[in-house]
Simulated assay, not measured.
Amino acid sequence: MKIAVLGTGGGARAHIARLHELGHEVVVGTRDPQATLARTEPDMMGNPPFGQWVADHPGVELRTFGDAAAEGELVISGIDGINAVAALTAIADRLAGKTLVDYAVPFVYNPDIEHPWPTPWGVMPTFDPCDSDSLGEQIQRALPDTKVVKGFVTQEQTTVVDPQAVAGGDHTMFIAGDHADAKQAVTALLRSYGWTDILDLGGIVSARGMEMYAHLHSAIGFALGFGSPFGIKVMR
């Protein structure tokens, strides 16, 4: 299958490498391919420049967001939450009729709030939207002709593509969306990654809980030691 991955950060790179390993044809989307390849400094998370990384992954093609989306049979969006709706709306015609997996969290960084949550790298972001809406729902409303699935969001992407890294793979992955066939396609991809416990939470409205879980995910990560892989299991 030809799969488009939109984004070049650490999470996107995890999917790109794993998909390539599984034999898929991978095309990568970025805002400005020339600017992305010209960068010589690590990104905000300390990842090496994408041009340096992609040199070690021959066969990966870099396109604009729109061109990559047009080529992909399935699209994985790693666009950061604050920019996702605008970036995806701009290429809505290229995404029409396709399944789009969104794993972004709608973080607002450096919030000016009364009771900040200090973390090792500054104040914990807040969510916008929160409670009465979600980024997943906003994307689906903005792209009515696209089948949006919220998924991968309750895990670090390095664990999404390698679930066996935690408890031999015995933990739970969640998906949500309004289109059964799209969720079946995403479930098949997750099974190819190695997931055996995939829980469908229903419609895209369930993206609210999945996105807001990010705060608990962070708290668990801090407790275990930042960078320690972990998962959660729904016992039933």
Rank of each mutant, 00 (worst) to 15 (best):
V28Q: 04
D80Q: 12
C130L: 14
R39V: 08
L199Q: 13
H15G: 06
G225I: 07
G203Y: 02
H57P: 12
P120Q: 12
P33M: 01
H20I: 06
F127G: 08
E211D: 09
M173Q: 12
G23R: 09
R208F: 05
A223T: 02
I91R: 01
T172P: 03
T36H: 03
G51H: 09
M45C: 10
A87Y: 01
A142N: 00
V153H: 04
G169Q: 04
L6K: 05
V101T: 13
G209H: 01
G194W: 06
D162Q: 09
D181C: 10
H24E: 07
T36A: 12
K183N: 08
G202P: 01
G225R: 05
Q155N: 12
S228R: 10
D178N: 15
F127T: 09
A69C: 01
V205A: 11
K2V: 13
P33T: 00
Q34Y: 02
M235T: 14
V108T: 10
G221V: 04
T36P: 00
H179Q: 13
V28F: 04
V85T: 03
A70N: 11
G23N: 10
G177S: 13
I113S: 03
H115C: 14
G23S: 09
L37R: 07
A87H: 03
V205H: 07
P111A: 10
E41K: 15
H15Q: 12
F230P: 00
Q140M: 07
K147R: 14
V186N: 00
R208I: 13
N83L: 04
R191T: 11
D43S: 13
F222S: 07
V105I: 15
T36M: 09
F152E: 01
P111C: 07
I91W: 02
D178W: 09
T64F: 03
R31M: 11
K98N: 11
I198Y: 07
H57A: 15
P49C: 06
E73T: 04
L74Y: 04
G169S: 07
K150H: 07
F152M: 02
A182E: 03
G202A: 04
H171T: 00
D56A: 15
V186D: 02
P106I: 10
H217A: 08
R236Y: 11
T40Y: 08
F152D: 00
M235L: 14
D93S: 15
M44I: 15
L62K: 06
L190Q: 02
V60E: 08
D93P: 11
G97S: 08
V149T: 08
T119W: 01
D80R: 14
K147T: 07
T146W: 07
M124N: 05
D197F: 00
R13S: 10
D32F: 07
D133K: 13
K233D: 09
E61R: 11
G202T: 01
F230K: 00
L95F: 10
T64D: 05
R208P: 04
V85F: 03
G23M: 09
E41S: 15
T40Q: 14
Y193W: 05
A69E: 00
S77E: 06
V28D: 02
T146F: 04
L100Y: 00
R13K: 01
I139K: 05
T196Q: 09
H179S: 15
N110G: 02
L199D: 08
Y103H: 11
G202N: 02
L201Y: 08
T154K: 03
G231T: 04
